[in-house]
């Protein structure tokens, strides 16, 4: 099913400056893999070598941090929106 991923400014260099990318995925793990297939290099920013989400990366689904849901196994509804939210930089 098709879902949408909101891309923060510092990662848009991987997505040809698109702020929203649509991929086919049933859960967050598949969404990240599909994002990587379409925009190589982006997964390493989000996940460590073992494939786990980096500690400082926050993914929000329906306004909830996926760490409070089923993490990478969190299932996504058709048309759902997943947001990658960066840390707050500067002063």
């Amino acid at each position: 099913m098709s879902i949408h991923i909101r891309i923060p400014t510092p990662l848009r260099r991987f997505t040809a400056e698109q702020d929203r990318v649509s991929v086919e995925a049933r859960n967050v793990r598949e969404a990240i893999d599909a994002l990587e297939a379409a925009h190589p290099g982006i997964k390493a920013r989000l996940c460590d070598e073992s494939g786990a989400l980096r500690r400082f990366v926050n993914l929000y689904y329906k306004d909830e941090d996926i760490r409070f849901l089923q993490e990478l196994e969190t299932e996504l509804d058709e048309g759902a929106e997943l947001s990658i939210v960066p840390a707050i930089a500067g002063g």
Binding site: T9, P10, L11, R54, P86, I88, A89, G90, G91
Partner: peptide, 21 residues
């Protein structure tokens, strides 16, 4: 500075990808 534009060092700025103060 953080070593990448996408980082988790809250409060710090990666100047190459930011509005430079």
């Amino acid at each position: 500075e953080p070593d990448d534009a996408f980082h988790g060092l809250e409060g710090l700025k990666h100047l190459a990808s930011s509005i430079v103060p």
